[in-house]
Write a protein that binds this DNA or RNA. Structure first.
Length: 357
DNA sequence: GATACGTGGGG
DNA sequence: TCCCCAAGTAT
């Protein structure tokens, strides 16, 4: 039990879980991985594989971005066994563009662990799920609640915001998290999966980050932030870290057939194991390019790409490779089939700037 | 417990 | 243009 000052904060009105569920019965979003509350009431259960897949894809990622990836993955790999049997490289190709690529590597490792350690069935409890790669506190709870109605608190960013407003929490979300989780745990009803999804939908559509539509909210009656009149003041956000700029050069090397030279990035760090065009290091100061071999290098423009913790400016160069040049650490890719490569968005921008695709 | 880790859309 | 941010996890 949290013993922080926040834990002692008076909570005037408890969360009305039944009001939340009634709202969800009318306003649940329809999503490809979701079983509607009406279906659920008839005994339909979601496929734990699809719940897991969608939850991992949704980590720090918008619903809009996830949809087509989810449909593609379930088409290619309908079961966890299919995904486990696929080569990691194929999974990375399909994940390319979605970001946070450790998720894809952990996804594959998790699928293999489910097959090898659990006979191809996902563990049925949050505690069991938590031991698997890429599944943390949130995702384990979400899967257990949604797939099996385990009565566990499912606390994501949406729910944090809803609770921070309901109880007018004025400490940063990070500090408040364990208290919020304990408060939420007390309210989880029998329909634990619907409750979790209801609170997330509420946070996504009504109690949104910039705008709280309190007149539409089932929790408005007891909400302390709504009563204060400025719900968007919560949750209090921690100060953002500075985002430095790094600079570098990207080299788009073509052969006489128009094929493009690509290689695999290192196994650790940013964009690990993904495909890239060759290039320089990315450093704090602008440097002159050091080309991998002499030739008629053409400056094609600049790519600006914003990562979570730094902004990157790359100068893009292209060249026609001489036939004699020994390039050994990568491969030549057909320029018409780059969709089959595990190219992150950054390198798709680089190629586009060089006139490829 | 801070930090590393992507991307695209909205205001 | 720029800032914020979206269903977090691993180290």
């Amino acid at each position: 039990m949290p013993k922080t000052a926040l834990a002692q904060k008076p909570r005037i009105s408890p969360i009305d879980a039944q009001a939340v569920l009634a709202w969800y019965d009318k306003h649940a979003r329809t999503l490809p991985w979701r079983v509607s509350p009406q279906e659920r009431a008839l005994g339909v259960r979601p496929d734990p594989y699809k719940v897991w897949l969608s939850e991992v894809m949704l980590q720090q990622t918008t619903v809009a971005a996830v949809q087509k990836y989810f449909l593609r993955f379930t088409e290619l790999w309908p079961t966890v066994g299919d995904l486990a049997a696929a080569p990691l490289e194929a999974v990375l190709v399909e994940w390319a563009g979605l970001g946070y690529y450790a998720r894809a590597r952990n996804l594959h490792a998790c699928a293999q662990a489910v097959v090898e350690r659990h006979g191809g069935e996902f563990p049925r409890t949050a505690e069991g799920l938590l031991t698997l790669p890429g599944i943390g506190a949130y995702t384990s709870a979400a899967i257990a609640a949604i797939a099996d109605d385990e009565r566990v608190a499912v606390l994501d960013g949406n729910v944090e915001r809803v609770l921070a407003r309901y109880f007018a929490v004025d400490v940063p979300a990070r500090e408040a998290k364990e208290d919020l989780r304990a408060w939420l745990q007390e309210t989880v009803p029998e329909r634990a999966g619907d409750y979790a999804q209801a609170l997330m939908d509420l946070g996504a559509t009504i109690c949104a980050p910039r705008t709280a539509l309190c007149m539409l909210c089932p929790l408005q009656p007891g909400c302390m932030a709504a009563a204060e009149g400025n719900p968007e003041r919560h949750p209090v956000k921690a100060e953002k870290a500075a985002r430095p700029t790094r600079h570098g050069h990207a080299f788009v090397i073509e052969d006489k057939d128009g094929d493009i030279y690509l290689r695999t990035r290192p196994a650790k760090g940013l964009l690990a194991k993904m495909t890239e065009t060759p290039g320089s290091e990315w450093v704090g100061e602008k440097m002159e390019p050091t080309f991998p071999f002499p030739g008629e290098w053409r400056h094609r423009g600049q790519v600006v790409h914003v990562f979570t913790h730094f902004r990157l400016e790359l100068e893009v160069w292209s060249v026609l490779a001489p036939n004699t040049e020994p390039l050994v650490d990568g491969w030549w890719a057909d320029r018409g089939e780059l969709d089959g490569e595990a190219l992150p968005s950054l390198f798709r921008k680089v190629l586009a700037t060089a006139g490829v695709e």
